[in-house]
Simulated assay, not measured.
Amino acid sequence: MTLADYVEILQAEHRMERVYPFEFEGKSYWLKQPEHPHGIQRLLKPFSRAAFRREIQRIKWLILHKAPIPPVKIINSHCLVMEDAGHNVRFWLESDITAAQKQRILDDCAKALADLHEHGIVHGRPLLKDILWQDGKVSFIDFEAVSHSHKLIWQKMRDALLFIYGVCREKTTPAQIQRTIDTFVCYEDSRVWHYALALVKKYRFLYYLLLPFKPLAKTDLLAFYVLFETLLAKFL
């Protein structure tokens, strides 16, 4: 039985599951297929098949441009099969590994994102749950944006701030955040970082406006505070 044959069986058995992990001949894979909304979800997600086709086109573009994504084994209009490329970075930061190992992973991610940008590719939402790490290799999943040459710097700048926001949002120390920023700045195009800091400076009034609510803040808003406090103190 080939991998393609086995995937056909899985699709028949797990038709309603959008993402399904499985093993075949000792290797781990992920099967992704069009969502099959039911009930009220049909009204909320009426174009799930069209969305999947757009995702497939995006994956094909990323393969063509040799983006760091998990190895793709099957790709067509009704399914996508990728090799497992390890746990996401959020998992690693919450796991029982040393602080030095966690910092290495964060540094690897910062370098990988800068390298992605150097090749003219943007992610759109590089939060740590969408970045995989395994044995020093970084892979990106769930790309949210298509790279547009006429606004590429702006897209990279958004990537930069969302990545750092994601680092601030997880279980990281101030030292880890600072080191990860330093690593990213070292490898990223200086223009991107210049525009990112300019945007933070422009909207720092939001930080002061929201500051009175800090004692009540939850995870997302707390990460916003940390992002602004870190960048304002270090660079502005």
Rank of each mutant, 00 (worst) to 15 (best):
I131D: 00
F163W: 11
P212M: 02
Q176N: 08
E17I: 13
K214R: 08
L210T: 05
I97N: 04
D182V: 10
Q41K: 15
A112P: 06
F224E: 00
K151R: 15
P68C: 03
E188N: 10
P21E: 08
S95P: 01
G124S: 13
V81Y: 11
F52L: 02
E13A: 15
V192I: 06
I164A: 03
L211W: 12
N76F: 03
W92Y: 08
F140H: 10
T183P: 05
S28M: 12
R49H: 14
K102A: 07
E23R: 15
K60I: 02
V122P: 04
P71N: 10
R58G: 01
I121E: 01
K214M: 02
V146Q: 09
E118V: 07
V192D: 01
L62F: 00
R58E: 00
W154K: 15
P212H: 04
L232D: 00
K102C: 06
Q178I: 11
I164C: 02
V19G: 05
G124N: 13
I181C: 05
L199I: 09
H123L: 03
T98G: 14
L197C: 03
S139T: 01
N88V: 01
K137G: 06
L10E: 12
A114Q: 10
K202S: 11
S139N: 06
L236Q: 12
H119F: 09
L232I: 02
H150R: 15
D107L: 00
L232M: 03
T172H: 07
E55K: 12
I74L: 13
A114T: 07
H148R: 14
V122T: 14
F235E: 13
